[in-house]
């Protein structure tokens, strides 16, 4: 067994320090060691997208990285989207448009959309559809998710 390494990360603005074997997946480190249970694990081979997080501002699959690789990084997970006890406009839009059912893929969806609307605040519906295609949802049929993304974009444009 390889020795544990120190892992220092900032998650949702909070500094964390932990120790992990090199093989420990970042998704497991977030959940098991930091007890940030919002990030969900759905396939552990990078396809379902439920574990998507922002890693230094970029969306990545946390099941395809080792925790030791994250040292020094700034991470954002679903727990970090709402601020001051208030839903983010994306979360509001998801609620208003029924863009989630079981809610298991939702953390990955929200992080994906959060990044997408930052890069593309005025998307077409087709772009929104493509953006969420990296996260599998088995419940919704995606239609209401795409509707929510478009509505969120509008909310955010108005607020900006």
């Amino acid at each position: 067994m390889a020795d544990k390494r120190q892992v220092k990360v900032k998650v949702n603005g909070v500094e964390y320090e932990g120790y992990a074997e090199p093989r420990k997946l970042l998704s497991d480190f977030l959940r098991d060691d930091l007890e940030l249970l919002g990030t969900h694990v759905g396939c552990e081979h990078g396809i379902c997208g439920a574990c998507t997080i922002l890693f230094n501002g970029e969306p990545i699959r946390s099941c395809l990285m080792f925790a030791v690789q994250a040292t020094g990084a700034e991470i954002m997970t679903v727990e970090g989207i709402a601020e001051n006890g208030k839903l983010h406009p994306i979360q509001e839009a998801f609620n208003e448009h029924h863009a989630l059912q079981c809610g298991f893929c939702t953390p990955g969806m929200l992080i994906t959309v959060y990044h997408f609307l930052k890069e593309n605040p005025n998307p077409t519906e087709e772009e929104a559809r493509e953006a969420v295609s990296g996260v599998l949802c088995r419940c919704t049929g995606y239609t209401q998710i795409v509707e929510a993304v478009m509505a969120a974009a509008e909310k955010m444009r108005i607020a900006a």
């Binding site: 940030l36 990030t39 997970t77 679903v78 727990e79 709402a82 998801f94 029924h98 989630l100």
Partner: peptide, 13 residues
């Protein structure tokens, strides 16, 4: 609007 969403949207399910 769904009541379940509050916890599910904020990573608290």
């Amino acid at each position: 609007k769904r009541k379940e969403d509050m916890r599910l949207l904020t990573g608290r399910g």
